[in-house]
Design a protein around this nucleic acid. Structure first.
Lengths: 208, 208
DNA sequence: GATTAAAAAATGAACGTTCATTCTTTTTTA
DNA sequence: TAAAAAAGAATGAACGTTCATTTTTTAATC
């Protein structure tokens, strides 16, 4: 059996890595700038020139990473949504009891919103406006499948009310987004106690 | 004692009335067009020219009624919010029991959203984006005072949970807006049964 | 290790378009 | 016929996007 090696000189490898990293840094800076500006001004009041300036990059450079402004926000949305879902379901397994699973996921979602408030805020705005195009929105929704599955099982087992997924979503998950919004506007502050109270209310509203 | 009359010829009076009505009609058409276009495209993707066209009016005519585009959406927001609040509290009196008052107001809000889905949708979008300026937003919030007062009384009487107004709002009222949004996207349909289920979940989540 | 030239990446200025708003003209009203 | 209302064309600013150019990187040669 022959074993082949691809031999790359160390100095070259290093520069390639450094190169890739620099490129990644720029892209990440653009993503962060987009989230920040869209959160504060809204999609259409966040011009490409401003996004570029905040990311310390030329407007033209944006088009090396993204096809258009619409493509930029679509991609940012999908990436943030993916990170959000990964975090929400990270410690969840499908063999859990429904109530335990719900509590776990609910708290992970709350954690995410505390940990990355800007990303959470951005998602809330994407989900509430005609800012993201339909295919990307559909793609983003798919990531919540584990939660939908859990709800379906909960309904079959008679643990949660036989109401629609939208109602379940509205009563258990969505209110957190409203709180985030209020916090962003400086009208309230989310802390340990708020989170606990919110979970209690969430469970009370959906349990059978 | 002298009594004075202002005598207006009937024909003139009629035309003045007709004149005023025509003016009112145009303004109303502009308001309706704004709501419709903002709902479907968002604030910044709803150009004045398009609003004018939908209202069968010249772009310049808009400026006879409103100072600017910002002034237009601010005024539309406040008018819709005022109509919404008036409807929500119309049959409510402060001497009602907390639970009865809450049920009444909750159902009136639901009714409004069924009756005027476009207006409700517009309010939801205003409340979730940086589209309305801060003074107008503050002004709009004031209209919900009767509901806040009812909650405070409910907390004092030990009828509802001692949680913040934002949480109460998020769990009892806000989910309806989420349902409206889903309905607008064709993802669900709100009917008698949904409304009843939603009310049950709302009360369960806030009652002590 | 230094030099150099080709290639790649990044830039800022420029373009065409679109928008909110204004101005001048036309139409309607009294 | 004078005044008021409405219209549509005109305007300047701002935007997304592109393009010609500059800067940086790469790799070969001396």
């Amino acid at each position: 059996m022959n074993v082949h090696f691809l031999i790359i000189p160390l100095y070259q490898n290093n520069t390639i890595m450094a190169k890739l990293q620099k490129s990644k840094d720029k892209r990440e800076a653009l993503v962060k700038a987009t989230i920040c500006l869209v959160n504060n001004d809204g999609f259409h009041a966040a011009p490409m020139s401003k996004i570029a300036k905040m990311a310390n990059v030329s407007p033209a450079t944006i088009y090396l990473f993204f096809e258009s402004k619409q493509d930029l926000v679509n991609k940012v949305y999908l990436e943030v949504k993916t990170a959000f879902s990964a975090y929400a379901f990270e410690t969840f397994t499908t063999n859990m009891e429904v109530e335990a699973g719900f509590e776990l996921i609910w708290n992970r979602i709350a954690d995410f919103k505390l940990k990355d408030p800007d990303e959470a805020m951005f998602l809330a705005q994407c989900d509430n406006t005609p800012m993201i195009d339909e295919p990307s929105r559909q793609e983003g929704i798919k990531h919540l499948q584990p939660l939908l599955d859990l709800w379906h099982r909960g309904k079959e087992e008679g643990v949660i009310k036989p109401i629609s997924d939208y109602l379940l979503y509205a009563y258990s998950i969505n209110p957190l987004s409203f709180l985030m919004l209020a916090q962003h506007r400086g009208e309230c502050s989310i802390n340990e106690q708020t989170i606990t109270e919110a979970y209690q209310a969430a469970w009370d509203s959906i349990k059978l």
